[in-house]
Measured scan of single mutants.
Amino acid sequence: ATNIVGKVKWYNSTKNFGFIEQDNGGKDVFVHKSAVDAAGLHSLEEGQDVIFDLEEKQGKAYAVNLRIK
């Protein structure tokens, strides 16, 4: 899925991951530091509006192509 809109539920910059809540009511999506770095960001803030693509690997969904809304 592409261009999914959501809000950062939480992001832990020490542990380098967090979760994004989808605006469409879907399951929360894992986001890793690598996606944050690829977006040219240092971190994510709770409540921040983002747009992302959804990829699945080994049955787990995660956010890629992250951008600030």
Rank of each mutant, 00 (worst) to 15 (best):
L41I: 15
Q48R: 11
G40H: 11
Y62G: 13
G59F: 08
K9G: 03
G6P: 00
V64P: 00
S13W: 12
Y11F: 11
D53W: 04
N24M: 07
N12E: 09
I4M: 08
K27M: 07
G6W: 01
V64H: 07
E55F: 13
E21W: 14
G6H: 01
L66K: 00
L41T: 06
A35V: 09
T14S: 07
S13F: 15
V5E: 08
R67P: 00
V36M: 10
K33Q: 13
A1T: 12
N65Q: 07
S34P: 03
E45Y: 11
D28I: 05
G18P: 00
D23R: 10
I68D: 09
F30L: 05
K27A: 14
G40W: 05
F17E: 02
K7N: 05
Q48M: 09
K60C: 04
R67Q: 08
L44K: 01
D53G: 04
L54Y: 15
A61M: 12
V64N: 08
L66S: 00
S43C: 05
N24C: 05
G40S: 10
G47W: 05
F30T: 02
K69F: 06
L41N: 05
V50M: 11
K9D: 01
V50R: 00
Q22M: 15
K7V: 06
R67N: 08
E46M: 13
N12I: 07
G26V: 12
S34A: 09
K15H: 07
G40C: 05
F52M: 04
L66V: 09
L66G: 00
K27T: 14
I68G: 09
K7Q: 06
G47L: 05
N24G: 13
K27I: 14
F52I: 04
G26F: 07
F52S: 01
W10K: 05
K69M: 05
V31G: 00
G18A: 02
K9S: 05
K69H: 08
V5R: 14
A35M: 10
V8E: 00
K57C: 05
D49M: 09
L41H: 08
K33W: 10
G25S: 13
I4Y: 06
Q58K: 12
G59S: 13
K27R: 14
G59M: 12
W10I: 04
Q48H: 06
S43Y: 12
T2A: 10
K69W: 03
I20C: 02
D28G: 04
N12G: 04
G26S: 11
A1G: 11
G59Q: 12
G47K: 15
V31F: 14
S34Y: 13
A38G: 11
E55W: 13
N16R: 11
F52T: 02
G47Y: 07
D37H: 10
L54F: 09
I51Y: 13
I51H: 08
S13R: 11
D53S: 04
D53V: 03
F30N: 01
F17Q: 03
H42S: 15
V64S: 09
G26T: 14
S13V: 09
Q58E: 09
G59H: 11
A35E: 11
D37C: 06
E55R: 13
N16T: 12
G26I: 10
V50F: 05
V50E: 00
A61K: 09
V29G: 01
T14N: 14
K33E: 04
N16Q: 08
D53P: 00
G25P: 09
I68S: 15
D23N: 09
A39F: 03
L41Y: 06
Q22D: 06
N3H: 07
H42P: 13
I51F: 13
S34C: 04
D53R: 03
V8Y: 01
V36S: 02
V36I: 11
F17L: 03
T14Q: 10
E56T: 11
D28L: 07
D23C: 06
V36P: 01
K15P: 01
E56G: 07
V5N: 08
A39D: 02
K9N: 02
S43P: 12
V36A: 05
K60D: 07
N65R: 12
I4W: 06
K33C: 04
R67M: 12
E46Q: 14
I51R: 15
V50N: 00
I68T: 09
I4V: 09
D28V: 05
L41D: 03
F52H: 02
A39P: 02
V8W: 03
L54P: 01
F17K: 02
V50L: 14
S43K: 07
G47D: 09
F52K: 00
L66W: 00
F17D: 01
I20A: 01
K33D: 02
V50G: 01
D23G: 14
H32I: 03
E45F: 14
D23M: 13
W10H: 05
A35D: 06
N12C: 06
H42Y: 10
V36T: 03
G40P: 02
H42F: 08
N65W: 03
S43N: 11
V8G: 01
S43G: 14
G25K: 15
T14C: 06
I68P: 09
H42C: 05
I51E: 14
K69D: 09
I4F: 06
V31I: 07
V5G: 11
G18Q: 01
N16I: 02
N65C: 04
E56K: 08
G59I: 06
G47T: 05
H42V: 15
E46L: 09
W10Y: 08
G6T: 01
A35N: 05
K33G: 08
Y11P: 01
E45K: 14
K15Q: 13
G25M: 12
N16S: 11
E55Y: 14
R67E: 07
N65D: 05
Q22T: 14
D49Q: 14
K7D: 01
L44F: 14
V5S: 07
G6M: 01
A61I: 14
I68Q: 14
A61N: 13
D53Y: 03
A61C: 04
Y62T: 08
K33R: 13
N12D: 08
D37Y: 14
N3R: 05
S43A: 08
V29Y: 07
E46H: 15
F30G: 02
K7R: 10
A61R: 08
L41A: 07
N3L: 05
V29Q: 02
L66Q: 00
F30M: 04
G6F: 01
E55A: 14
V8N: 01
I20Y: 00
F30K: 02
L66D: 00
A1I: 14
A1F: 14
I68A: 14
K9T: 03
V50D: 00
L44V: 05
Y11L: 03
E55D: 11
V5I: 08
N12P: 02
G6E: 00
E21F: 07
S34E: 11
L66E: 00
N24H: 13
Q58I: 12
A38C: 04
K15D: 05
L41K: 10
Y11W: 09
N65M: 07
W10C: 04
A39I: 07
G18W: 02
A38W: 07
T2Q: 10
V8C: 03
D23S: 10
D49I: 12
I20M: 04
D23K: 15
V50I: 10
A39W: 03
L41S: 09
K69R: 08
K57Y: 09
K57F: 11
H32R: 03
K33L: 05
L54A: 06
K9P: 00
